[in-house]
Amino acid sequence: MTCETTDETTGETPSAASVVQGPGGGWRSYGGARRSTRAVRVRVSAVLVGATVLAVLLVPPLVRLDQQAVDLALKLRPPSWAHPFGTDDVGRDLLLRCVYGLRVSLLVGLAAALTATVVGTAVGALAGALGGWVDRLVMRAVDTLASVPHLLMGVFIVAMFRPGVWPVVVSVALTHWISTARIVRAEVLSLRSRPYVDAAVSGGASRWRVTVRHLLPAVLPQAGLAAVLMVPHAMWHESALSFLGLGLPSHTASLGTLIQGARSSLLAGDWWPTLFPGLFLIVPTLALAGLAGAWRERINPRRRSELML
Rank of each mutant, 00 (worst) to 15 (best):
A17L: 14
R136D: 15
R162M: 11
V165C: 05
V210A: 03
E12W: 03
G109P: 10
P301D: 06
R298N: 11
L106K: 05
T257Y: 00
D71C: 08
T9M: 12
L229F: 07
D93F: 04
P84C: 07
L266Q: 11
E238F: 05
L110R: 02
A292G: 09
V99I: 13
D71K: 04
S45T: 11
L255Y: 01
L152F: 06
G269H: 04
R38N: 13
A111N: 05
I259Y: 00
D198Q: 12
G24N: 13
R182P: 10
L255R: 01
V19T: 14
T37E: 10
M160G: 11
E187A: 13
G245V: 11
P277S: 11
S36Y: 04
L110N: 06
H251Y: 07
T2N: 12
P79D: 08
V108R: 01
A199N: 03
A33Y: 15
R41P: 09
S250T: 14
S147E: 06
V172W: 02
A55Q: 06
P301H: 05
T9A: 15
W166V: 15
S193T: 14
G131K: 05
S179K: 01
P163R: 02
V70D: 09
A69Y: 04
R213A: 15
A111H: 03
R38T: 12
S202D: 03
Q68G: 08
L137E: 05
R263E: 12
A125L: 15
W81Q: 12
R103H: 05
Y100G: 13
V228S: 04
A141N: 02
F243R: 07
V70M: 10
A69S: 05
R303G: 13
R97H: 04
R28N: 10
A227I: 10
L58D: 04
L62Y: 01
T144D: 02
V148A: 09
P61S: 05
D143G: 06
R140W: 06
R194I: 12
R136M: 11
P149N: 09
R302D: 15
S18K: 11
L126W: 00
E12Q: 10
D93W: 01
A82E: 15
P79E: 08
A253H: 06
F85N: 13
V134Y: 00
A227C: 15
V197K: 03
G120K: 01
S206R: 01
A253Y: 09
L248P: 05
Q68V: 10
L286S: 10
R296T: 11
A226I: 11
E4Y: 02
T144H: 03
P84W: 02
H83C: 11
A125T: 14
A116M: 08
A127Y: 02
F161L: 13
A218C: 10
D143E: 15
R97Q: 14
V142C: 00
T37G: 14
V142W: 00
P149E: 13
V142N: 01
I183K: 00
S80Y: 01
Y30K: 15
A111D: 06
Q67F: 02
L241I: 10
